[in-house]
Design a protein around this nucleic acid. Structure first.
Length: 185
DNA sequence: TGTATGATCGCCT
DNA sequence: GGCGATCATACAG
């Protein structure tokens, strides 16, 4: 069953734990996500439509990619019906495919540092603004839902690196994963 | 193991 | 002019 990206970002963020994402065949299992939507002061979409966040207000099932701190790229999957300004930030992967290419791009050997953080995983998967607004069901993307019978334990907690709406438990992780950007407290 | 800092882009006030 | 949905490095204890 494909993932229903027209669902609320909280539902999609939870459903994505244990799913997989690949860009040109390089990627792995999603182990950490965060939900954002227009009601949320921490979201880029909160203040409305701008050139940067346009993809968030477009159709669901596409990528929203933005530059973070002027240096890194971060990738979201757009959710909810078109115009709602919601998305899920992909924060960490467990690498499973194209690991040598990730190592070259990251200049690192340590498996746990290749994709454990939103900026790191974009560098490892060569994600840039060129993919902003692109459909997730077309090349170069491939998103594979977790198996319905998969035994995954999803843990919820507060999001990382934000100053507004800090208390909302909108971060989701695969319990016990070694590949998180930070351990769940 | 932790705290501090610089890099540097786009949007906002 | 200020501030991030970050990360790597430098240093202290």
């Amino acid at each position: 069953m494909p993932i229903d990206f027209s669902a609320p970002s909280l539902v999609v963020a939870r459903a994505l734990i244990g799913a997989s994402v690949f860009v040109d065949g390089v990627g792995g299992t999603i182990v950490e996500t965060e939900a954002y939507d227009q009601t949320d002061p921490a979201s880029h979409s909160h203040a409305g439509h701008t050139a940067r966040n346009a993809a968030m207000f477009g159709p669901p099932g596409r990528a929203y990619i933005y530059r973070s701190y002027g240096i890194h790229w971060c990738m979201n999957f757009v959710c909810e019906p078109e115009g709602h300004g919601a998305g899920v930030l992909i924060r960490a992967l467990e690498p499973t495919a194209g690991i040598e290419r990730m190592r070259e791009r990251r200049g690192l050997d340590a498996l746990t540092l290749l994709c454990s953080g939103p900026g790191r995983l974009c560098q490892a998967l060569a994600v840039t603004h060129e993919l902003d607004g692109m459909r997730l069901d077309r090349k170069p993307f491939r998103v594979v839902a977790r198996r319905p019978d998969a035994a995954v334990t999803v843990q919820a907690g507060v999001r990382i690196g934000i100053s507004k709406s800090r208390e909302l438990p909108w971060r989701f992780v695969l319990a016990g994963s070694r590949y998180l950007s930070k351990p769940m407290r």
